[in-house]
Simulated scan of single mutants.
Amino acid sequence: MRETPWTISGRCSRPISRRDALRYAAALSAMAGVGAAAAGAPTASAAAPTLIDFAMKQIPAQDIKAAGHAGVINYVSTSRPGSNFGAKPITLPYAQSLAAAGLVIVSNYQYGKPGGTAPSDFTRGLAGGVADARTAWRLHTAAGGARNAPIYFSVDDDIDRHAWNTLALPWFRGINSVLGAQRTGVYGGIRTCQWAAADGVIGRSRTPGKVWAWQTRSWSQGQIYPAAVLYQRIIDTASNPGPVVGGIRVDVNDVLAQDCGQWNLHP
Rank of each mutant, 00 (worst) to 15 (best):
M31Q: 09
G35W: 07
V229A: 02
D53Y: 03
N148S: 01
V250G: 02
A21R: 07
A101Y: 08
P150V: 03
W214C: 03
V250Q: 15
G247S: 13
A61D: 14
L179E: 14
P226M: 00
W171R: 05
G247P: 09
V155Y: 11
G261F: 11
G144N: 10
A213C: 06
R191P: 04
T237G: 05
T7H: 08
G116K: 05
D158N: 12
I224K: 02
A55H: 15
T91H: 14
Q262V: 00
G82W: 14
G115Y: 06
T166N: 06
V130A: 14
L103F: 10
F54K: 02
A100M: 08
P93F: 14
K57A: 13
Q182S: 04
L169K: 06
R183I: 01
V186P: 10
A39S: 09
A257P: 13
Q258F: 04
A136D: 15
G203Q: 13
G246S: 03
G129V: 02
T117K: 13
M31Y: 11
Y109A: 00
Q194H: 10
R249V: 01
W214E: 09
R2E: 11
P170G: 04
G246M: 09
V252T: 11
M56V: 12
G128I: 04
Q110K: 11
Q223P: 01
A25G: 15
L167H: 15
S154E: 02
H162M: 07
M56P: 11
A21V: 05
I90F: 05
T166D: 11
V186N: 08
R138T: 08
H162C: 01
W219N: 14
P114M: 14
A227D: 05
I8T: 05
A99M: 12
L256P: 10
I190H: 13
L103R: 07
G86E: 07
T4N: 08
T4F: 09
G145Q: 06
W219M: 00
P226V: 00
I59Q: 07
R11E: 09
W171A: 04
T237P: 12
G35V: 01
I52R: 13
S45T: 12
A168R: 02
L28V: 00
I175M: 09
G82R: 12
F85Y: 12
W164Y: 07
T135M: 15
G125T: 06
S97I: 08
C12H: 10
I8L: 08
A181W: 06
T166M: 07
I224P: 03
S13A: 15
I105K: 09
I8D: 15
Y225D: 05
V244D: 12
Y75A: 02
D251V: 02
L92F: 15
S45E: 07
W164V: 00
Q223I: 01
G145C: 06
N240R: 04
